[in-house]
Design a protein around this nucleic acid. Structure first.
Lengths: 195, 195
DNA sequence: GCACAATCAAACATCATGTATGATAATGGA
DNA sequence: TCCATTATCATACATGATGTTTGATTGTGC
């Protein structure tokens, strides 16, 4: 499959990713410099550029694991393609759980002073997943398919951000419930209640 | 109100804002340098720093007009605090219209290679507006108030981005209809329909 | 053990940032 | 009209990040 990798290459890349993660937790992604990374990883400058074009490239390359996780979560989720279909959005709970496990990293990436790069990357991965999930659903005259995908992904990220920034007490299940409530029913019910 | 402003100061600031806007349209916010701005505006380097701490500061200071527009749109919107309340979210149509009028700027700011700073600024302004709008609505056990605010703002930005990036043919009214549909009812209706 | 490839330190050119200085010009009030 | 004030200017400077190059050194896979 993947060509066999020279041990030195593997070691270098691992060191760089590790250094980036440490630094993200310590000072936030935006302000990190290449110098910081190679100092932390104890890797030569030219070696860095032999592997990545910059810190954005390095960050991006670290998202395969997340992608794999989501794809699998989607496969393992209870996809009962018949029934009341409250089991839709099979990815969400798994990802909320993943987010709690790596809370610090997620918060550093997705939170206030986070990285556009990371958020866009997550957005793209999620879009694929949701798109696949909606493939069995028939079209809607009012709202095009891709809008619905973006809506779902956007709402997910809204919840994720809100959760990580302020209310870490809530369990993944609780947050997931709110997420589903919003995505499926919107805020109409609670707004319109008051007459 | 505001202290009387020296003509020179006014002229400088106007030139800088104009230069920033031109450059945003020409090459995108992120890659703009201070040097670009002061060259374009034909303003001395030290003068720039006498007014703003950096390009982010300059950008931020250009959002009062937007803020004012939204506040007024909210006031003028048909706020019937009784009735079926489909008139909620009084700001949205006005902002979609504003966005179409300044399409290029919005797209440059909010689109793909846009600016986090700008998006965050818009997000914050919108949050204030929505928060005020929801002040008369009673609480909901399932979804806290601030989550609903973030949800509405997030969905609005999702629609705005999608609209500006891909489907400029749609009218503000049509986009607004989709926005309201999503915010009020979610995607449950169209997803759950298929059994 | 050997050919090859990866890593290294060091140096370099380039460019952006932010600050400082003293001269010059515009402004607003008297 | 005059004048004190204040903004602007060109210029220079220190600092630090970026990305590339070079030739020597060291680790790998076979």
């Amino acid at each position: 499959m993947a060509d066999v990798i020279d041990r030195r290459v593997a070691r270098t890349r691992k060191a760089l990713h590790g250094a980036l993660m440490s630094l993200i937790l310590r000072k936030g992604y935006e302000v990190i410099t290449i110098q910081d990374i190679i100092d932390e990883a104890d890797i030569g400058r030219s070696t860095f550029y032999a592997h990545y074009t910059g810190k954005e490239d390095l960050l991006r390359s670290g998202f395969q694991t997340l992608r794999a996780l989501l794809m699998e979560a989607q496969r393992n989720a209870p996809v009962k393609r018949d029934g009341p279909h409250d089991e839709a959005l099979g990815f969400s709970l798994a990802m909320f759980e993943h987010a709690r496990e790596y809370r610090d990293v997620y918060r550093a990436l997705v939170g206030g002073r986070g990285s556009v790069v990371a958020v866009n990357e997550i957005r793209q991965v999620l879009s694929e997943v949701v798109k696949k999930e909606l493939s069995g659903v028939e079209d809607d005259d009012a709202v095009p398919r891709d809008v619905r995908v973006q809506f779902i992904v956007g709402t997910f990220l809204t919840m994720l951000t809100w959760w990580l920034e302020g209310k870490p007490r809530l369990t993944p299940t609780e947050v997931d419930a709110m997420f589903r409530r919003l995505v499926l029913d919107g805020v109409g019910p609670s707004i319109r209640v008051q007459h």
